[in-house]
Amino acid sequence: MTRAARLLAALRRNLLAAIPTALGIVILNFFLLQLAPGDAADVMAAESGAATEETMRQLRAQLGLDLPLLSQLMAYLGHLAQGSLGFSPRYNMPVAELILQRLPGTLMLMGFALGLAFLLGLFFGTVMALNAGRIADRALSVLTLIFYSVPGFWIGLMLIVAFSIKLGWLPSGGSETIASGKTGLDYALDRLRHMILPGTTLALFFIAVYARLTRAAVMEVAQQDFVRTARAKGLSAFAVGRRHVLRNALLPVTTLAGMHIGGILGGAVVAETVFSWPGLGRLAFEAVMRRDYNVLLGVLLLSSLLVIVVNILVDLLHAWLDPRIDLR
């Protein structure tokens, strides 16, 4: 099969599997919204001050809140199809717009954390696998286990104590220096400086995840025949490691890395809250505090869809890289 045909087949298979899942998540979202205390009419009444029993009933009829559950679900799906997630009176703007405004901040932070976790995890994992059972392996195993066990919000606070309060090297919150008037390179560096602490906080857990995955994958690949052949034909250890072992070990690591994307989004809630980073996670936290369920469930829905999309992309990447992946 050619590469293009493989990609198309993978895309078709993925979409067929993803559509029912996405629909299920939308329905779950709808029921959670139904369970949330208070409905849109309550919110509007609270915003406008007093409302009588009569006007409330009219409002509910107008908003379709007195219809049977199934018709309400259909209406919700209809709104979604038009890209509408409802309106947030607290922020005085449509929820979809609010979320899209915050999305780039989260994506940037996630990208930074993922990149850091991937590089360090790959490095740690390879070092561990090549020294399996020796002191370097043991020491790094302990380190990754600690990364595994540390609560993100706590390590975030401790990083603030060390690097912002005691040493004064890095800012303790926000995504840029407010009204600094910086432009160009200075501005980019300023943003980067703001990203280091929250990004590291978010990355720690995933450094541990990737390190463990890489260790297992490298050890598995290193036992395969083609690696022995490569060694036998006299390639240097470095060349074997890079071209034969690591390249093949990357495949399982990326698959499982895709599975952890939801974990990173969840971790972003905590990291963004600790560092007042303007993103989706902080928005979710603010929505909880303000009891703004439309916004909260909008974030849940959008982040779930993001997970689905990323997983499809990872699978497509695989179909691109690995000719063994065929129509299943």
Partner: peptide, 11 residues
């Protein structure tokens, strides 16, 4: 399993 578990948990 698809929704980020911590976000679902908060909700």
């Amino acid at each position: 399993q698809t929704p980020p578990s911590f976000v679902l948990l908060i909700v």
